[in-house]
């Protein structure tokens, strides 16, 4: 299906996309995980992850992207991200209040530090990335089916 010349763009675009789409996804995950050390965070990294899937869809046509992440999987993952963020917030009640940072802080400038902040970044990254990809998927599919 990937090498079908009928769907998607030309061969040059497909080859370049095959080389770069993994790097874009990896860069998004890096931005999410290092949100408490460097500029970035859940919002920017999530949008970059969504852009990698949009890149795949624009180059190869919509079938390849749907075989990676279908619409039901996207909406389920978005709900899981939202529930994960809310449950992290509710875990603070173990220490006494909403959104309390109950995990150990660690030493600053380390990757595993800052308590719940990396977990919150991962939850927001899943939620924003998959949510924006679901929006784009819905816009494309409905226009094609009419």
């Amino acid at each position: 299906m990937i090498d079908n010349p009928k769907t998607g763009m030309t061969l040059i675009v497909k080859t370049i996309t095959r080389l770069t789409v993994g790097l874009i996804l990896l860069f998004g995950i890096y931005i999410i995980l290092h949100g408490h050390l460097s500029p970035g965070g859940g919002f920017a990294g999530g949008v970059i992850v969504a852009l990698s899937f949009v890149h795949l869809m624009l180059a190869f046509g919509k079938d390849v992207a749907i075989s990676k992440v279908s619409k039901n999987l996207a909406s389920n993952l978005e709900s899981i991200g939202a529930l994960m963020f809310l449950s992290i917030a509710l875990l603070g009640f173990l220490g006494g209040s909403f959104f309390l940072n109950i995990l150990p802080k660690g030493t600053p400038f380390n990757l595993f530090s800052a308590g719940i902040i990396p977990l919150c970044n991962i939850a927001i990254g899943i939620k924003v990335g998959v949510g924006l990809f679901a929006i784009f998927l819905t816009l494309v599919i409905v226009e094609k089916s009419k």
């Binding site: 965070g41 919002f43 949510g131 924006l132 929006i135 819905t138 816009l139 409905v142």
Partner: peptide
């Protein structure tokens, strides 16, 4: 503003779907 930018994108997409 960081949260406001992402909300702006979602609201723009909602308006565009109504326009379609």
């Amino acid at each position: 503003v960081l949260t406001s930018i992402v909300i702006g994108l979602a609201v723009t997409a909602l308006i565009i779907s109504i326009a379609i």
